[in-house]
Amino acid sequence: MVDLIYQLFPYAIAFTVPLLITSLGGLYSERSGVINIGLEGLMLMGMFVGALIISRTESIYPGTAIWIGLLAAMLFGAVFALLHAFACVTLNANQVISGIAINMIAAAVTVYLARLISGSGNIQIIRGLSRQTIPILSDIPILGRLLFTQTYATTWFVLLILVVATFLLYKTRFGLRLRACGEHPHAADSAGVNVYRMRYMAVIISGACAGLGGATFIVTISGEFNGTAAGLGFLALAALIFGQWKPWGILGAAFFFGFASTVANVSQVVPMLAQIPGIYLKTFPYVVTLAALVLSSKYSLAPKAIGEPYDKGKR
């Protein structure tokens, strides 16, 4: 049993990381008042760009190709998110419909391009990121083996982003203003905050994070772009809600869901887990998210102005 947990942990963490960073992106967008159900599409864009860039550059720059790919995925995610920001912020469009459009555009355009490039529509990378064991820390009893052996560099990178993002959101002027735009944009505006600009920035950040999430999934877990994010973006959305729109809540929720998904994924090959029906494990994140929404309905922690286009003239 203990051995099993030791074995599962690295996989669970690897699965958690893309969820976590995508969720974090969603957090920025939603905290500024823009619903982002386009996370799935933004992630898919990151997967596509990441896989494409890495597959093209890995023979030339074997070591750095992965990092170039991750960076490109972030960049393209951010640019693609501009489409969502333009619709939601500048044109006052329905944010849910725009998010759906983002998902559908990403699904159509990436596969369209991938087919032109490879025929089958799959883009494989030859070498993913390799696992590393952190020298001294991995000698810590129990924790060392759970957290510091066989880790990916991206895991530490994403955790660093989590810390920075939390600091930014809660301890800086920028963060305070961003959160104000999601709670009471008119008050923020009257205090001199440019609501449109803040929301643009938040949505762009969410695109960069989701793009990074998608590319991280490619370099650590799947190794190829195959035309779908398989619901990961929606799982990240569930983590965002279950984590109650708070960075550390999201960390917990993403790990919780990542662990459940990992157990479900390996339950076929591990006899001890085969008794747990996969259906419970896989539906678990969505069921608990619904349950959390029901339980928190009295004192909802969702940003107050979420989903409302900001209309300067309306007071």
Binding site: L83, S98, A101, M104, A107, A108, V111, Y112, R115
Partner: peptide, 12 residues
């Protein structure tokens, strides 16, 4: 996928 692209753009 051009058909899906057209439909997705129409939604947007």
């Amino acid at each position: 996928e051009i058909a899906d692209t057209i439909i997705a753009t129409i939604i947007y």
